[in-house]
Each structure stands twice: as C-alpha cells, then as structure tokens.
Design a protein around this nucleic acid. Structure first.
Lengths: 229, 229
DNA sequence: CGGTGCGTTGACATTTCTCAACTGTTGTGG
DNA sequence: CCACAACAGTTGAGAAATGTCAACGCACCG
C-alpha cells in the first residue's frame, strides 16, 4: 500500500539498514511520503508527537523560538537524516519546530502509533536502532577528537592512521574516499594547507601521494605527529 | 543482592537516568561490579559477547590488533561512559578488545542474557536507551559543527549563542558552566586567545564579562561573527 | 580542441600559539 | 589574621601556523 519511495528511503537509513525485509515492510506500512515547499511547517515546538521523520530530499531546519521571539536554529538536516526519534519514544511532544528549507523537500513520516507498537513488540527493531545510533555516536566522538587537535598536521595524521587498510608494517596504501578538497573540508582546513602538508611529508619520506590515494611509509613518525609533535 | 555501587552507577548513566526505580533495580540485578588493575583485559576482539559495560572509575581503552600485530586504539573511555551496547544487541561478538588503563578501574558489567531479555520485554528500557543515544548524538553533532568553524571567534560566538538563558532581547547573561581555561579547551583554543577575544568584544561593546559569566549585549553582531564575519 | 575544475605552488596577510611577566583571588598553615 | 603559595586570568611581544589571493599545470569531458 505504501509508495515504493517510502520503502526505498527507509531501506537506506542506518536505523533500518539491517532489518529483514519483512520487518522493514511493516515499518513502511505505517509511513507515508510528504512533499513540502520551502517554509512549510512540519510541526511546532510543543505539538503532540505524531511520528518521526526521515529526509528523502531537500532540507529541514529545526528551531526553537526564544521567549523574546527570536528564532534559534537547533539543527539543519539533509537527505538521509532522521529526526524526532527521541521525541516520539520518550517525550510525547516535539521539543522544537521543524520547517522545510527547500522546494521541493520530501520527508517520510513514520507515524507514531504503528511505529511505537512495532518498537515495543519487535526487539529486533529496537536493537537495530540502538545499534545504528551507537555506530554513529562512535564515529562522531572520533570526529570530535580529531577536530579538537589544534594543528592541521595532527588532524591529518590522525585521520590517515584511522583509515582501514593498514596491512603489512610500512608501505600502507590508503584510498581516499573523497576528493582532496572534500577531505580538507572534513578536516577543517583549506585545500592549500592539505596540499602543502602532504608535499612536505612526501619530501621527508613520510608518505607518498598519488591521485586518490596516500601511502604511509613511516607510521611511527606519523603517529608522533598525530600526538602533536 | 547487587551491590549498592551498581545501582548507584547505573542510575547516573544517561541510558538509565529516566528509568523508574523498579526497572532500574531489575537492570541492576543482572549486573555486577568488577575491579580491574591497569593492563587487565576485559574482553578480546572476537569474544562472544558476555554483556556491556559502564565505567565507574578509572579508564578503559578499546583497541583492535591489526593484521601485522600493531595495536590500533579505537577509543578511550572514562567514568560515566558506556561501551559495547551495540555489540551486545546486534553482533553477538565484541568488535574490539578492552583493557583497563588505570589502577584501580571499576566497571559495571551488565550481563548480556538478563539484559537482552529485559530489553526485549520492556519497551520503556529500549525507548530510554534510544532517547539517551539521540540526545548525545545531537549534542555531538553540534559540537562537530562548532569545532568545524575555522576561526576562534566564530567558535566562541556560536557557543555563547547556543547557551540557554537568552531572555529579553539585548543584555543576556550566560553563566559559564566551567572555568575559562576549560571553556577554552572545549572550544579548542588557548586561554590567552579566549581572554583576548572577550577583551576585544568588551571594548567594542558586544559583551560584558564578569567572573563566571558573560553578558551578551549585541546578539545580532555576535551572530554575524558566528557565521564567520 | 577548448573549457572546466581540481590540485599545486608562491607571496603575503592574518590569526593563533608560545613564552614570559604580571595581577588578582583563593586557600592554607603558622 | 596575615604571609604566602598556588593558580586562574590577563597582557605583551614575537614566532609559527594557517588562511587568502592569484597564477599555473594538468586531467577529464564534451
């Protein structure tokens, strides 16, 4: 009964990726696609909780209105992100308001009642959600630790050392998942700084760089740099 | 039957803080306190999952051993933190090894079987866990956004604007939850830089500073700074 | 063959850190 | 109650890291 888009969107969410198709179908049954225009309000702070949401396309802004009428942005969300899970499962009311920021914006609304029941009756569902939340939590904590490092070199070194593919000691090739400029943005530095860092390390024999990959030659010294040497 | 320390530790965890006492007691029944010395192994990568853990005191390091025998640190944990929830609920095996890093280290072991059953039978428990995970997720995402800002001024401005207590427009007093040097560390800058920023803003009439609090006088211009002006 | 965008490099400006000195507060022991 | 140590916070000067702007090469794609 539910549109194919709903099922497709849900199946790509971290929360539900590991669910078996049957269970996923049951989640989808209680869900529907909503198309919004920029500025359209999805729910308001204090509203009773109808359900939680996954962004399929476009963008959503979560905000609170302060006592003096000012709008405080809590969060921006884009495709593939979910929100208001906690509101649904714990609080019964939305703790912030949500508005679409683009035209068109598509969201999947996972209705509260059928979902809550499913959540209660199907431990596989709650376990999957806890699992996906833990995973994201871990990667975010790592990200915070990475970004907390003061100097750009330490951030890059640490990032490289964390990548998988650290096979035999010495000569470890790491495939960059993104373009260098995106990596730079991820590490909160400019592409120029990234380029110069890699250049210097290459001159010092620490790494080799090719298109789309970096080969670590001396993990020891790189580790020292990551610790802030 | 369970030690009072167990109940006390569990009750301070975000996961369980909102649980009613009866349910908390049942979680505690399946838990026990373990005292470890530095270097003592709690579990190894690949072991079947006995349960998950909360650190009560001391520290725990999670690590993986790479194919070439190198030890890769995945994570450090301190008092009040939990780990291996996802391993327990989804995977059945630990994806990393855990070792105590201090003497003494106390952890509460929440045994897998009683807890899993409780998790399956008590939606309040799973809902509380999902809720606490969502909260932490949100605050971490905000932290990442904050740290991603390139210049120190933007990070500080954004941090101030996010604090609660924004009452009447203009003149908003914000009580600092921590000492200035800790705030500086939180924002990944030196105390000197923080001091100079506040000094400059004070001279420009943007804020006033007292011991332990900052009063925002001109939220508008501060917002511009947070956006990177 | 040209255009477009990424990556690199250089010169320069700015921010931020480091080091050092100084101030004020707090807490402590005599 | 006072001297004094310990520590947070401030301020200044200079160094280092990083960003900005501009130019260029190179690959990829129509």
């Amino acid at each position: 009964m539910s549109q194919p888009e709903v099922l497709e969107t849900l199946s790509t969410l971290p929360h539900f990726r590991l669910l078996d198709p049957e269970l996923l179908r049951r989640v989808a049954e209680g869900s529907r696609l909503r198309k919004l225009e920029s500025g359209e309000i999805l729910f308001r702070d204090g509203d009773p909780c109808r359900g939680f949401y996954a962004v399929r396309s476009g963008g959503v802004r979560l905000f609170r209105v302060t006592p003096d009428g000012r709008e405080q942005v809590v969060h921006h969300l884009g495709a593939g992100q979910t929100f208001a899970e906690a509101a649904l499962l714990n609080m019964g009311r939305y703790p912030a308001s949500a508005v679409a920021t683009e035209t068109p914006t598509e969201v999947v609304e996972i209705a509260g009642e059928p979902f809550s029941r499913l959540f209660r009756e199907e431990p596989r569902l709650s376990a999957a959600m806890v699992g996906s939340l833990c995973m994201r939590l871990i990667s975010l904590v790592e990200r915070v630790e990475e970004l907390s490092l003061v100097n750009a070199g330490a951030r890059l070194a640490r990032h490289l050392l964390r990548q998988p593919g650290h096979g035999p000691s010495g000569r470890v090739r790491i495939d960059l998942a993104m373009a260098k400029k995106d990596l730079a943005a991820h590490l909160s530095m400019t592409p120029e700084t990234l380029s110069r860092l890699l250049r210097r390390w290459q001159d010092q024999g620490l790494v080799e760089t090719e298109r789309g990959s970096v080969t670590v030659l001396d993990p020891e010294r790189l580790l020292a740099l990551a610790d802030g040497a």
